[in-house]
């Protein structure tokens, strides 16, 4: 129950959620709600693992995962952007399809044994900083460091660049963006693709770093849905998405570690003596997601912040209103 170790592991496992959440932030900022994150993560995890087995190179695995998950996301893009169907049902269908295809193609992969994983390393100098060094910069996967770079980059891109401005315009007021000559349809396709790639990267981070291997649907265990929830908590902001993701990662590690010691705050540790209570600990991340949603929803009402105005609404050229 060393807090440093819990936080260090939290950053490592939270990186999975971070990629998926960042991807969903970008897709939703463009106005497309994609509930297929869980399916895209599954197909990413499966692709990464099997491509690494085939080639022996985890980098190729990661790349393949991002491409395949990105391509899968285009099903949702086509149905919701071009065919203007309900985005909720379409995203749900994408999760079912992604899960189904990964189960079929991943058959037998669970017995494949070990593969070469993404490398872990420490950052010189930065790892010497007290407390922060061991948590963030010591013996982390290269994917974790990619996450550190990606978060501020996404924030800067969305808020301070011209393409980012276009992205926000398309999500907030697509008909105005269209009138300014921004191709609403093409941008939405692109950001759904980027969202899919990042969800695939999240899946690859599971199967090639955090919990190596392929365990059918248990590989993701609902993390795609937690990511969708985190987007609301994050108020569509990459920095808050990172904070939320790492906090969730730490929570998952805490749940594992809390069952270890004989005493807890001076009392007999009930989770040590009655291992069945562990089932209640397993509920915590999911219950916490609901609580986080309540906090996020209340805050957005109070601060009058909230979802991109055109989120979930198909853009139809020539229709009245937004």
């Amino acid at each position: 129950m060393d807090p440093i170790i819990i936080l260090q592991a939290g950053v490592a496992t939270g990186t999975v959620l971070l990629f998926a959440t960042l991807g969903e932030v970008l897709a939703e900022r463009s106005g497309v709600l994609n509930l297929g994150v869980e399916g895209m993560m599954l197909i990413g995890a499966m692709t990464a693992f099997s491509a690494t087995i085939a080639t022996g190179n985890p980098w190729i695995g990661v790349l393949a995962a991002m491409i395949v998950a990105g391509l899968l996301s285009q099903i949702h893009a086509f149905i919701s952007i071009t065919l203007q169907a309900d985005q909720v049902v379409s995203g749900l269908a994408l999760t079912l399809v992604g899960a189904g295809i990964s189960l079929v193609l991943g058959e037998g992969l669970s017995k494949a044994g070990t593969v070469s994983l993404m490398p872990n390393f420490s950052i010189p100098l930065l790892s010497l900083i007290p407390i922060l060094g061991p948590i963030f910069f010591t013996n982390q996967s290269v994917l974790v460091y990619i996450g550190y770079l990606l978060t501020p980059l996404a924030w800067y891109y969305i808020n301070h660049t011209r393409p980012g401005l276009h992205l926000r315009a398309v999500g907030e007021y697509p008909s105005a963006a269209d009138a300014l000559g921004i191709n609403v349809f093409r941008l939405r396709y692109a950001y759904v693709f980027v969202g899919g790639m990042l969800a695939g990267l999240g899946g690859a981070s599971i199967s090639l770093a955090v919990a190596p291997g392929w365990f059918s649907e248990l590989t993701t265990g609902g993390q795609g849905w937690i990511a969708v929830g985190l987007v609301i908590f994050a108020q569509w902001d990459p920095i808050r998405a990172a904070i939320g993701s790492y906090a969730f990662g730490a929570l998952r590690r805490l749940i594992l570690d809390i069952q270890g010691p004989l005493t807890l705050l001076g009392f007999d540790n009930p989770f040590y003596y009655n291992s069945y209570l562990g089932f209640f600990l397993q509920m915590i991340p999911y219950a916490f997601t609901v609580i986080v949603l309540v906090i996020g929803s209340r805050e957005s009402i109070r601060k009058r912040l909230g979802a991109p105005a055109a989120l979930g609404v198909p853009y139809i050229r020539g229709e009245r209103g937004k």
Binding site: G39, A85, S90, A93, G100, I101, L103, V104
Partner: peptide, 22 residues
């Protein structure tokens, strides 16, 4: 076999259904 086939077919059916609503 493989055991995921029924689940996959269900998912594909839903995708095609939503697309057909067009």
């Amino acid at each position: 076999q493989p055991s995921g086939i029924p689940k996959m077919i269900q998912g594909i059916i839903l995708v095609c259904l939503i697309a057909s609503d067009f």
